[in-house]
């Protein structure tokens, strides 16, 4: 039940953090990741307006044949996306933990600029401790 990858998308749709943890998905270039993140941002905006009865939280899980994508939207419109295998059941709990680590190691770090790519050693270390070592 591997976790393939983690993305963090800022409120403008830019990919600010991307990391792979296990093989199983096609390897993409960083540009392709940026495009995919932007596309997901657009899809998410559409899905949040699809509900016939007022507002909606937008897509939470997108499933494919070989993987599933769990999306956590925070109150500040940052999106955490976890790519896992279909049988993975802990994705929601892991995303909550990632959010917690993000608030601690990124938002409380004076050397991080909001909405910019995350280059914080503390964040990397704690994500490694949570999910495991990436390739």
């Amino acid at each position: 039940m591997p976790i393939y990858g983690l993305w963090v998308i800022n409120k403008a749709g830019g990919l600010v953090y991307q990391r792979n943890f296990a093989d199983g998905l096609a390897q993409l270039t960083s540009n392709e990741y940026l495009v995919l993140a932007g596309t997901l941002h657009g899809i998410h905006a559409i899905t949040s307006r699809l509900s016939p009865i007022g507002s909606s939280s937008g897509a939470q899980v997108i499933e494919g044949e070989t993987f599933k994508m769990t999306i956590l939207l925070t109150a500040t419109a940052t999106k955490f996306v976890l790519l896992t295998s279909l049988s993975e059941t802990t994705a929601d709990a892991v995303l909550q933990k990632v959010y917690e680590i993000y608030s601690d190691a990124v938002m409380k770090n004076p050397f991080h600029t909001p909405e910019m790519p995350i280059r914080s050693e503390g964040f990397d270390t704690r994500i490694t401790a949570l999910i495991g070592n990436g390739s």
Partner: peptide, 8 residues
């Protein structure tokens, strides 16, 4: 919670 960047 502070990670000092490498150049500093």
């Amino acid at each position: 919670y502070i990670s000092v960047p490498k150049d500093m």
